[in-house]
């Protein structure tokens, strides 16, 4: 038996006995069918038979299966972990995908054809033909208000979202605002309430009427769902409590000087803290003085 590390080290020898893109053809076919169904019913969770992967469930198996079902030898792939291309998990996933398919690796958002991501949407606008694959821990937005999966599914079927709204109302009554930070619930195509995966509020407006295809994969929960290009995606909001993104008033990325980016705070040695752009590729481009289009909404 080859361990994952030998698999990654020696492509030629280790790949005897493995399928192209690791998954067997039947698995890929099932996943592609689930994607097509998801495209046809935007925001609807399509069940699929999540396979055992060479990484643990909860580490992006849903996203990885989507990527492997779609990737071809001529694709250019990028993997993001919380905005970062260089985290151990992102690097390992990217290498696994590249080595089992011969696809080209990249860090450049604009150059990639397939981007697998955990908890972020790139700052740089994605164009037609690009695919963003989001790793999802909890695909069911109604999980917090309804513990029964069967009941939640019939609530989706009947478009019965009053309890979701009630949870938002209660939040406003108790905290003065909707407190959901990551994974703010959205309405897709005026029909399904969807969990956008734990992306920050900053990224929510990017989902609306975008040019690229968004795929969501939850490996542990065995669900796939889709936001096709040019689909209306609206955050759930009350008329008098409108949705708002995070604000970084006056702050800029300590490394690149980027201002129009989602910033994260990290402690410094002197006991203070500094803010840096979470999208490392975007920060690199700003640092190199490149023009980057960040206007998702047009």
């Amino acid at each position: 038996m080859s361990s994952v590390s030998t698999l990654l080290e020696d492509r030629g020898a280790a790949f005897a006995g493995y399928s192209f893109a690791f998954l067997d053809d039947m698995a890929k076919r099932e996943i592609r069918r689930a994607i097509l169904k998801g495209v046809a019913i935007p925001g609807h969770q399509v069940p699929f038979g999540s396979r055992e992967m060479p990484i643990a469930r909860g580490w992006g198996t849903g996203g990885l299966q989507l990527t492997l079902a779609l990737v071809g030898g001529s694709d250019v792939i990028k993997v993001i972990d919380q905005g970062d291309d260089a985290s151990v998990n992102a690097v390992n996933l990217r290498r696994l995908i590249a080595k089992t398919t011969g696809a080209t690796e990249t860090l450049d958002t604009a150059a990639a054809t397939l981007i697998q991501t955990r908890h972020r949407i790139p700052e740089e606008v994605m164009r037609e033909g690009q695919v963003l694959i989001l790793q999802v821990p909890i695909p069911e937005p109604l999980r917090l208000v309804e513990r029964s999966v069967a009941a939640a599914r019939s609530m989706h079927a009947e478009m019965d979202y009053s309890r979701m709204w009630l949870a938002l109302y209660e939040d406003i009554v108790r905290r003065g605002e909707v407190s959901a930070g990551a994974g703010y619930p959205v309405m897709v195509n005026g029909r399904f309430v969807m969990a956008p995966s734990p992306i920050p509020r900053w990224d929510i407006p990017k989902l609306d009427n975008a040019r690229c295809l968004f795929l969501f994969g939850a490996g542990r929960e065995k669900r796939i769902y889709v936001v096709p290009p040019f689909t209306k995606v609206e955050p759930l909001e009350f008329d008098d409590y409108p949705f708002d993104t995070e604000h970084f008033d006056g702050k800029e990325c300590a490394l690149s000087g980027a201002t129009n980016a989602y910033l994260v705070e990290s402690p410094t040695e002197d006991g203070g803290s500094r803010w840096t752009a979470s999208d490392t590729n975007y920060a690199d481009k700003v640092l190199a003085g490149q023009e980057v289009d960040t206007q998702w909404k047009r």
């Binding site: 709204w165 009630l166 109302y169 108790r174």
Partner: peptide, 23 residues
Amino acid sequence: MVTAGGNIAERLLAAEWRKVADI
């Protein structure tokens, strides 16, 4: 485990009320 006001809001929300102040 939902506030008294929230219990009433539940029926209003089902009737598409979407303004917290009105509710």
